[in-house]
Design a protein around this nucleic acid. Structure first.
Lengths: 140, 140
DNA sequence: CTGCACCTTCCCACAATGGAAAGGTCAACA
DNA sequence: TGTTGACCTTTCCATTGTGGGAAGGTGCAG
């Protein structure tokens, strides 16, 4: 199967499939005589695994770890669970930050009458030097 | 005031101050005879505004728009409110996605005994080709 | 044979930030 | 006075994950 078909079946763009191969997340694909990459059910399954883990917000590095665990039939499930829980904790942390930000924003928006008048509590408030809230965190 | 002091007073790194100037988010800073950038209370206030809007998760593009609205004393507050509400809606959307992802992850983790045994429902589930949930969205 | 859809590699761009190199400046201290 | 150390300057590179496009080869259908 060509890369186009593999992409269609997995929802991973051809561009990304090549990239994943390039950075070593995936093993080098088999090549046909014409140089085209060739994919079978096995490879498609791996791509689906990657797609799904990406959808769940795991970084490529985490995906890589999960792939390794997946192929290691004898690994203790503890390791997998730990990885998942770390990721959950990470998401929880980000959600807490976002909630705080939203709360502030909603308050600001609420007090702005939002009409033709030019006085605007949102901008007034943004201009005030504030107690520096949580610093920017890396996003996934 | 040197860039270092300005940075310290605003919480915006010197690196970022120069970058903001370079991309045109901020006007070119005044220079002293020795070539050092020179900042006054005015500039510090702008930096604080930027810092605060960044903390609230606005993109640099949005910050730029907010700065323009801020300096335009006659703009209708409606415009500012609309920008804020768009951003709120964006955050809400992302939070909904994250909540869905977390729910799935928690379920997966819950069913994995997480001990020495090797069978792991998390990996089993990840391997299953699934109804493709929400595609990756841009992060701020 | 021509055209079109596919494949290949390679390079560029993005958002926002940090890091580091190579050099100029300034103030304080011996 | 000279040196040291803390600043400042610019420039280049890396990150994460993805898309876009160019330039060229391939394969099939009409």
């Amino acid at each position: 199967m060509n890369i186009g078909q593999a992409s269609e079946q997995t929802g991973v763009s051809a561009k990304m499939i090549r990239y994943y191969e390039e950075i070593g997340l995936l093993p080098s694909a088999a090549r046909r005589a014409n140089g085209y990459r060739d994919y079978g059910d096995q490879e498609v399954a791996v791509l689906q695994f990657v797609r799904r883990t990406r959808d769940l917000g795991f970084s490529l590095e985490e995906v890589s770890a999960l792939l390794a665990l997946w192929s290691d039939k004898k690994r203790p499930s503890r390791e997998v669970k730990r990885l998942a829980e770390t990721h959950i904790a990470d998401l929880e942390h980000r959600m807490r930050e976002m909630r705080a930000v939203m709360k502030t924003l909603r308050q600001l928006a609420q007090h702005c009458h939002g009409d033709e008048r030019s006085d605007c509590p949102i901008l007034d408030d943004l201009a005030k030097p504030r107690a520096p809230s949580a610093r920017r965190t890396r996003r996934t």
